[in-house]
Each structure stands twice: as C-alpha cells, then as structure tokens.
Design a protein around this nucleic acid. Structure first.
Length: 634
RNA sequence: GCCGGAGUAGCUCAGCUGGUAGAGCAAGCGCCUUGUAAGCGCUAGGUCGUCGGUUCGAGUCCGACCUCCGGCUCCA
C-alpha cells in the first residue's frame, strides 16, 4: 500500500503496517523520536495500522510546540501518575486521567484524604518509574473481558466506563499497571524529560455535583526541561497581568470581606466604568434603544410569575419585610422590563421596543465561585430587552449581532461564539424551543459567525448565543449574550394589537453585549496588561515640573489640558524627575509632560508611555490627542 | 456549596522545635531642586483574620467560623 507523506512524496509499505513501521521505514532516528502520528489530520496511536492512501505526519519529540504531540506525552504521563498512586496508596480507586491544555490530570478516589505534601512523594515515585523506564503495550479487548479485568482489579469507575464505552475497547499497560484507555500513548517513557505535579483539587465524578467528589491531581510534562522552565516563566508573566493584581497596583478597585464578591470601585476604576457607560449610552441612542430605570427589589409574587422563584431562587438575595412579605433583590432586569412593557396596551406600531438599563444586579453566587471582577455578586450588565413581533425577530437579532461586532472590534477582542440550547430545567414546550433555537442558529449563519454548540446550556427561559473569552490564566468566561425568549412574555401575558386588530404574542430578546462592566473590565485589563487606550485611561496625562520653580507653569499646563477635556494631573512631589517618571510608568499613564527651564507652552517635552519622546506645543498636543481621547466613533 | 492551600504593618514577605513581633517598599516629616524607570536621612505604623480551647505562657498547638487563592460545580 501507499502512504502519503507531508512533503507529498509516497511511501510504499506492506499491507497493515503501523505508523511506527512507517517511521522506521523512513529512518531509525525518526522512529526513536516518534510519539504519535497524525492521519488525515487526526491524532492516532503509532501502533495502529495505516490504510492505503492515507496522508500521515509523524509527530516526534522535536514537535515540542505541537498540541497533539504534547497530548500523547501528557496522557502517558497521566498513566505514570496513576501507576505511582496505585503503588503508594493501596485501596485507591482510579477514575479518569486525560491530557488537558498545558498538562494533564488524573482523578482518584482515595481511601484516606491526601494533602499537598503527598504530591512530592508521588512525583518522586514517578521519577523512579522514569529512571526504570516504562513501555506501553496496547491491547484490544471484548467488552466482557474488559469488564472482568477491571472487576477483578476492583476498579468500579473503570467498570462503569467499560459499560458505557462505544466502539473498540482498548487498554494500555506499562509495568504491571493496566488502564482502560483509548490512547494514543508513547511507545516508551523516554520522551518524558520534564515532569511536575502542580495542584490538588476536588472534582466530581463525571462532572456532576450530585456524584461523589474525587481527588484530582494536576500535573504537566514536556519533552525538555527547558520547555518546562519556559512554561513556568510564562505562568509567572501571566500572573503579572492578572486583573486582580492590576486592580490593586493601578488603584482601580478592591474587595472587602464585609461584602464578598462586591467590588469597591476607586475613583480611577470608576473612570473606566463610566467611560464604558458613556459608550453604552451613546451607542444605544444611535441604535434606537430607550433608556429606562426600574426597581431593584420586587415582591416574591413577581419572581413566581417570572419563573425565577422556581428556577433561580438559590441565587437570589431575599429580604423579609414584616411578617407577610418577602422581597427579592433583582438578579436580572427582565421581570421589571416585562412589567414596564405590560403597563399599557401596545400596538404593532410600537414594536420593536428596545428597553435598555444598566442597573445593579445582585446574585448570590456560590462562595467558591467568586473570582475578582470576573465573578462577582454585584454585577452591572449592559442589558436590554427587545420586545418584538415574531416576524421582527431576524431583524432584531441581526441588529444585536451587528452591535456585537462593532463593540468587540473596538476593543480588538475576538470572542468565541456558542449556541446554548434548551437546558434540563427549561420552561415551555419543545416546539417553542425548536423555533427559538432555530432563529438563533439562522442568525449566526446569516452573519457567518462560527460557533460551537452548548447543548443544554441555555437559560431556563430561552436559548442563547454566548460569547466566551479566555483570561490570562486560561479560564474561559462568558461575556456577551443574546437570548431569545418566548416564555417570559407569555408568563406575563404580554401581547400587542396587530394591524388585524387582534392580540398577538410578544417575543423578547434579552441581550447584554459587553456582558457585564465588571467582567469586561477584568478581561480588558488582562488583555491590555493595564495599558488602556487613551479614552479609557483613568489619568491620560501627567505633568512633571522639573524643579520647584516650574510648579506654577506646570500647573497652568495641567489646567489647559483639563479645559481641553483631558484627565490630567500634576506630580510636583519633591522627588527626582526619574523617580516621578518611573511612578507614572508603573501607573500606566499614557502621556507625560516634563516641564523645566527648556519648556514653554509652545514647546513641551512629551513622553509616551514606554519612552518615546517628542516636542510639541500645548495646542499641538491637544489637537493630536483629542480624537484618541473621546469616545471612539464607528 | 464541595476538595486542597493560605491569612503576620497599606503592599511583598521573614519569624526554627510555644517564652508578649522584624525587613524591604509604600506612608509622614526633614534635607536635596532635580531633565526621562527608584536621591538621602529620620519617624511612625501590627487586637499576628475572628471567636473559643490547651498551657504558667499561643503569631506558633487544637477546634469552629470568616475571607482569600487553586480546582470542581454554577454563571454576565
């Protein structure tokens, strides 16, 4: 048979030859370094047979940046971990251990809880395995055989996986350790040159909080010690961009234990917040939205009507009022907007009606879920509800997607889109969900937006288009969301009078495009490392008088800049010029003006963040910065 | 909420096996009058997260709670 190589040349091989044999035919060195094979673009075990006409690419220890090569390495490292744990902790049950981005993990059910100190011990055992050397053997089994094997080994989690496995059941063994596994794996443990166990955490069996919580051990592995070092350095660098750290450094916000999960916005952070709010107001006005303000607390009865009492109560802050009543602080704006829409008779001539409100919302998020600005209890969405007739849905969805593109384009952020469909605890019938999900899907297609499917991840009242962004530590956060809802307007009995003088049902699009100001600012800080564009920078310019004698003239420059609409301040501390420049750089101030004997309002020394210097008049400076300083126009 | 870890000055951290706390930076004051990323000196600053327990004696040992960090679950 003939196999196609990456350079388009053909390789003649005996029928049924494996990837490893292909590598050997090309060269012994290649076979030695081979860790896996990509067949027609898909990762496959080296031991598996190839077929005639397949296009292959041998992955080796030299492909240290190739995710597939690393997957093979790390997945094998996970098996080394499992072997070590089994040897050290008799009675432990093993669950699953895949490679993940940047490493691997393995889940165990320990008879006695282990602590972080144990990791060193386990790592040592793994090193011993590496010193001895391990070879992996692949075997294919019948389901019954596999079942018997893992029953004998008293591995109930593996038995459960065997029972649910589809297709060929295979095992990989190294030493006297055998694991149920689809592969692929290394041929032997030689390529594992750098190994590190990184963390210990709880994780529910099969990711379901109703199941038993297992102990997850995280680790990472590389083809070289240098790669591991580089990875650790990258992690350190990433930590410097962490928005929680930047928030303190740049004096933007802080948290206090008296109100966990609720940021205290400092003046500088509030400037960023307000600039985004100004952008929201201007752009909403341009796009035919109407700003409203609705109450923060509502009687329980409203939440019963909206469905939140049934589906969202555990996330709500409730306030008992007297003996009789319970009020709920709103976690979303929608029910209030429903009341507003329903406050009078609506005609088809009123539609679409786009109500916008960026109100404070409170959600009692699980204590362990809170995370800086990206997961808060006091959240401010750039929210709006678009009330429309059925046939207006496509146009309104288009409007949202266009708005979305505009906003994310402004910030140079490229989110991933996800279509989240009906969840288990949904309201309404399957027919209604078929319709609303279909509307969202076709809208995405009209806009040629690539998306992944989030099956079962919709809101309880409707499906969503969600935008996700990854933070500096690799965690994915949901930002903007567009949700199509037939349930809530129906529950509130919302209708409009059509041209036919009859009542028709109203549809609502819930949409928050930045998502929330809090999370968006957190992500923006991490993406920019705090180097915000001029229009968002809390302090845009700082004037530094060289000596005491220059303070007055410098103050006049600050005044001039402020009158021109800039956020400017003066640093006339009795510190050296070098010191004050350093402090301003650390504060990420975009422009500095150093003012001494050589300067006049017609000849200023301007320094850009980072160091570039130039000379210009105050007038020129104002002219240059004004377009960058005001809200961006499309 | 669950698993693991941590909480000492505004920040970053030291404090060995129990004997009433220390550094650097920041702050305040003074000196220097500064030319593009840290000038010098002095001073002040801590209920050692909270509550309880063991002990002659607790930052240190034990327990509960609170908060934070890393995961899981959940979400903008």
């Amino acid at each position: 048979m003939q196999i196609l190589l990456p350079d388009q040349s053909r390789l003649e091989l005996p029928e049924g030859a494996s990837g490893l044999e292909a590598a050997r035919t090309i060269g012994p060195k290649l076979a030695e370094q081979a860790v896996g094979v990509r067949v027609n673009g898909e990762l496959r075990d080296l031991r598996l047979p190839l077929s005639d006409g397949e296009q292959i690419e041998i992955l080796t220890t030299r492909n240290s940046g190739d995710p597939d090569a690393l997957v093979v390495l790390r997945h094998s490292a996970a098996h080394l971990l499992a072997e070590a744990v089994r040897r050290l902790y008799p009675g432990v049950k093993i669950a699953i251990g895949p490679a993940i981005e940047n490493g691997f993990y393995y889940d165990f059910d320990f008879p006695e809880p282990i602590a972080e100190e144990d990791l060193a011990r386990i790592e040592e055992e793994m090193r011993r395995e590496l010193a001895e050397g391990r070879e992996w053997r692949r075997e294919e089994l019948e389901r019954d055989e596999a079942r018997r094997l893992f029953t004998e080994q008293e591995e109930p989690y593996k038995v459960e996986l065997v029972d649910e496995a589809e297709g060929t059941i295979s095992t990989y063994s190294q030493g006297d350790f055998t694991d149920l596994c689809r592969g692929p794996h290394l041929i032997d443990s030689k390529p594992v040159k750098a190994l590190k166990l990184t963390a210990l955490a709880g994780a529910y069996w099969r990711g379901d909080s109703a199941n038993k919580q297992l102990t997850r051990i995280y680790g990472t592995a590389f083809f070289s010690k240098n790669d591991l070092e580089a990875h650790l350095v990258r992690l350190e660098e990433a930590k410097k961009r962490d928005h929680r750290r930047l928030g303190a450094q740049l004096d933007l916000f802080h948290f206090d234990e008296h109100s966990p999960g609720s940021p205290f916005w400092h003046p500088r952070g509030m400037t960023i917040f307000n600039q985004l709010e100004a952008l929201r107001l201007r752009e909403n006005a341009r796009r035919g939205y109407l700003e409203v303000k609705t109450p923060l607390i509502y009687d329980k009865a409203l939440w019963v009507t909206s469905g939140h009492w049934e589906k969202f109560r555990e996330n709500m802050f409730l306030i008992p009022v007297g003996e009789e009543h319970v009020y709920g602080i709103k976690p979303m704006n929608c029910p209030g907007h429903m009341l507003l829409f329903g406050s009078k008779l609506r005609s088809y001539r009123d539609l679409p009606l786009r109500y916008a409100e960026a109100a404070p919302l409170h959600r009692n998020e699980l204590a362990g879920a809170l995370h800086g600005l990206t997961r808060v209890r006091y959240v401010t969405q750039d929210d709006a509800h678009l009330f429309c007739a059925k046939d207006q849905i496509p146009t309104e969805l288009d409007g949202c997607l266009d708005y979305l593109r505009y906003l994310y384009g402004l910030f140079g952020i490229e989110p991933r889109a996800e279509l989240s469909t009906r969840p288990e605890n949904k309201l309404g019938s399957d027919e209604e969900w078929d319709f609303t999900e279909g509307e969202l899907r076709t809208a995405l297609d009209r806009y040629s937006i690539p998306y992944v499917l989030g099956a079962g991840e919709g809101s309880f009242y409707g499906p969503k288009i969600d935008l996700h962004i990854t933070d500096v530590l690799g965690r994915s956060w949901q930002m903007g969301t567009i949700q199509l809802d037939a349930q809530m307007p129906a529950r509130f009995g919302l209708t409009y009078v059509g041209a036919d003088n009859r009542e028709h049902p109203v549809y609502v699009i819930h949409r928050a495009l930045l998502g929330s100001f809090e999370r968006f600012i957190g992500i923006l800080l991490e993406h920019t490392a705090g180097d915000l564009p001029l229009w968002l920078a809390p302090v845009q310019l700082r004037v530094i008088p060289v000596g005491e004698d220059h303070a007055e003239a410098a103050r006049a420059i600050v005044e001039g800049l402020r009158r021109a609409g800039f956020r400017a301040d003066l640093d006339d501390r009795a510190e050296s010029v070098g010191r004050r420049i350093r402090d301003a750089e650390l504060e990420k101030i975009p422009r500095l003006v150093v003012y001494g004997d050589k300067e006049s309002p017609d000849d200023l020394a301007v320094r850009e963040r980072g160091g570039a210097q130039s000379r210009k008049s105050l007038k020129e400076l104002v002219l240059e910065l004004t377009p960058l300083s005001s809200l961006p126009v499309s």
